[in-house]
Design a protein around this nucleic acid. Sequence first.
DNA 1: TAAATATCGAGAATTAATTCTCGATAAGGA
DNA 2: TCCTTATCGAGAATTAATTCTCGATATTTA
Lengths: 230, 230
Amino acid sequence: MNEPEVHSVKEPARSIPEPTLRRLPLYYRLLKQLRDGGRTGVSCTMIGTELKLDPTQIRKDIEMTGTVGRPKIGYDVHDLICAIERFLGWDNTIEAFLVGAGSLGEALMGYAGFAECGLQIVAAFDVDPNKCHRVIHDKHVRHVSKLPNLMRRMKVRFGIITVPASEAQQAANLLVEGGVLAIWNFAPAKIEVPERVLVTNEDLYCSLAVLSQKMTRKLAQSRAKGVSKP
Amino acid sequence: MNEPEVHSVKEPARSIPEPTLRRLPLYYRLLKQLRDGGRTGVSCTMIGTELKLDPTQIRKDIEMTGTVGRPKIGYDVHDLICAIERFLGWDNTIEAFLVGAGSLGEALMGYAGFAECGLQIVAAFDVDPNKCHRVIHDKHVRHVSKLPNLMRRMKVRFGIITVPASEAQQAANLLVEGGVLAIWNFAPAKIEVPERVLVTNEDLYCSLAVLSQKMTRKLAQSRAKGVSKP
DNA sequence: TAAATATCGAGAATTAATTCTCGATAAGGA
DNA sequence: TCCTTATCGAGAATTAATTCTCGATATTTA
């Protein structure tokens, strides 16, 4: 039942806390700014002040990437950038297919910053023949029927779904047929895939819920404090 | 130092856990599907099976909305839908201004589902004069210079930022000038606003980090297991 | 050279979130 | 009618994440 725990080196076999993974890109962005500004060293205190986060938390996050700092000095900016890249897998190129060439798909194809993370959208697909045979941001849009074969042939292992909710499952099926390893799903719908496939949902309604609930409570509070029954 | 805790009714003064807020829309979507399918009752067990979540967790989340269930029966689907709507503030219309009429902005303007959450994007703005004076999804696109005044005049309190990272702060400034209460920021950049303004960042790079790190580890594992030094 | 200080790293303490346990209850079948 | 079962709700136990504490260390300043 329990794995033998035989690690050749100090590879982190345990899974990394998701909050940590979500914070690393924030540090990464700041570090690049600092580097471009000519800085070579940085401390957790400074990152914390800049990002309004607890320095200890940042130290623990950085520890995960394997970077060691020096007391009184902090970390080397360049080393840290490289370590985060390596840790997140942003030092290797990942080729991706995008399904759904609507405005959201177009927006993602235009995200220049993805290149820095090693993400390269190599082609887009759509069911609508009118949207096919176009070129958006240098990428060809093809008909979805071509997806599975092309995916296997080009050995692409990553899929991005930007179709409407009603077509999300079909899109997922095509990607699975093509041998996808991980899917980034922007459709507000749950998709059913084999267990081996990693899925991350980018569900805008979940974020909206956080914001609108907080806003509603804030409005209620200010109303209660302000004009309580005029 | 401590508030007197005098609540007229049973308003939840404590803040709601964010994980709960992020799960509620998932239940909401499923419940609407069930309702449209003719179901009137539902149990946590069923929701849990459908969404692959722990039933106890769902029960606790639902408790937050103030809905009570009955043993052996579960909850009334209609009641639960209404309770979630009320709890998230989705039963009232929130009017929003969108800054940045690029493809991402266009995509959000086209999200029909936002209406169900009470979110109504009433106008869009852009710095680029070529993008102005158009109509996208029935909404006018105006020049950003018009934003602060129009926002005050129309009493709009919600802002959505879909400009490139380099222009995010400017966009935020305009919204603050217009008296914004909450901002949904899609630009991959941190924005500086007065403390009273709520901000939720929809940073795609944070999500990408989670996915690419997991994918990288998985690939490393399968490589280790498969061909270990040929 | 010595004192003062900013910082890291390790581990303890705290807080938040999830999962487990169990008694109560309501429906359906024996 | 009574037994069985599915479920809720409350609270305990567990696990995960954050924050605090402190000793060690390297640099700067007196």
